[in-house]
Simulated scan of single mutants.
Amino acid sequence: MEDTSTRSESESPPEEPVDPAPDGPDDPGPTGEDGGRSAADEETRDDETDIEALRERVESEYDFDDFGPSDMARMSAEEWDAAFDPDTWITGDRLLDRVDAELKSRIATRDVFGVLERVREDGEERILVYSDEGYAIIRPTGEVRGEGTVLRDIEPVVALAAMDSYEVPEPPEDWSLPHPDSVPEGSGEFGNLVVQAVAAIQVLAGAALLVASAVADLGTIVAPVMGIVFLLVGVFLFAMVANARLSDRFRSEEYRERLRALREAKERPEFVPVEDGVVTDGDAAATDRDRDE
């Protein structure tokens, strides 16, 4: 028999390799720059999608062709950033020219009440708009400073003019505030005449029905009741026309008084921080007060 005790260790049978454990659901996925970058790209795409959806909602909800202070106050900060992309805003002298044209058009249509001037501050040109109820100073950067109703009216105008997609209308030649004596008593006279004609027809129809009911024995109460209804409707329409005319006259007179106050003033109101066509330091203090309010 062969002695196996002297067999060398090298002749011993080789050990079988141990199979690696199968991948389980708890195994961590790939890590490193690629994994982190993929997550960041996915988050960026989600943010861009949200911004696009918000921009579409803002464009459908707001009418930027008739964008006013009430719309501006109603917009949230997120809606403002989505609607107005800062990278595409117009600035510099081009912005001032666009604001100048837009304001002249709005002054001509009475959407803005104020005197428009070009002034200077720190050697740069500014646009000044003032009235008896406030003022606003527009910088080439798009910043608007001031106080009162003029400031609230001017801010949305500057925002629209800074948008490259907004078409600024061409102002008329005679865009300035009218002379007080040239302001008509009221507007919409044609509409008042139409309502008066309808009211007269109602009154005549009601009177005819009442007379017919009194003279002829119609044997029904429908005719006199309808006659009374027609008379009441006619009287109501006449009263509505009278109230509209009184309101128009009141607004026209108020507008004329404001025009006279601006024309009779020998210089700008004291709260306007401009002297000899140059903006003074008082503008910054007024702006701080307006922001605190």
Rank of each mutant, 00 (worst) to 15 (best):
E2T: 09
D3A: 01
T4K: 08
S5Q: 06
R7I: 14
R7A: 10
E9N: 10
S10I: 06
P13A: 12
P14W: 04
P14K: 07
P17G: 03
D19P: 05
P20T: 06
D23A: 14
G24A: 13
P25A: 12
D26G: 06
P28L: 13
P28Q: 09
P28D: 11
G29E: 15
G29A: 15
E33C: 02
G35S: 15
A40I: 12
A40K: 15
D41H: 09
D41V: 11
E42V: 02
E43Y: 05
D46A: 15
I51E: 09
I51V: 10
E52V: 05
R55M: 01
E56Q: 13
D63R: 09
D65W: 04
S70I: 10
D71Q: 10
R74F: 02
E78C: 02
E79R: 11
W80I: 12
W80E: 14
D81H: 05
A83L: 05
F84V: 13
D93G: 06
R94M: 08
R94G: 06
R94F: 00
L95M: 08
L96C: 08
V99F: 07
V99N: 03
L103I: 15
K104T: 13
K104M: 15
K104P: 08
F113R: 08
L116V: 08
V119P: 02
G123I: 03
I127K: 03
L128Y: 09
G134C: 00
Y135D: 01
Y135C: 02
I137N: 00
G146R: 08
G148Q: 02
I154L: 08
V158P: 03
D164L: 09
D164R: 15
P169L: 06
W175E: 10
H179L: 13
S187P: 00
L193D: 13
L193A: 11
V198I: 14
I201G: 10
Q202R: 09
A207R: 09
S213R: 07
V215P: 02
A216N: 11
D217A: 12
L218D: 06
I221D: 15
V222W: 07
I228K: 04
V229K: 01
F238C: 05
M240L: 14
A242V: 01
S252M: 03
R256K: 14
R260F: 00
E267A: 14
P269K: 10
F271S: 09
V278A: 06
V278M: 05
V279W: 01
A284R: 13
A286K: 04
T287C: 00
R291P: 00
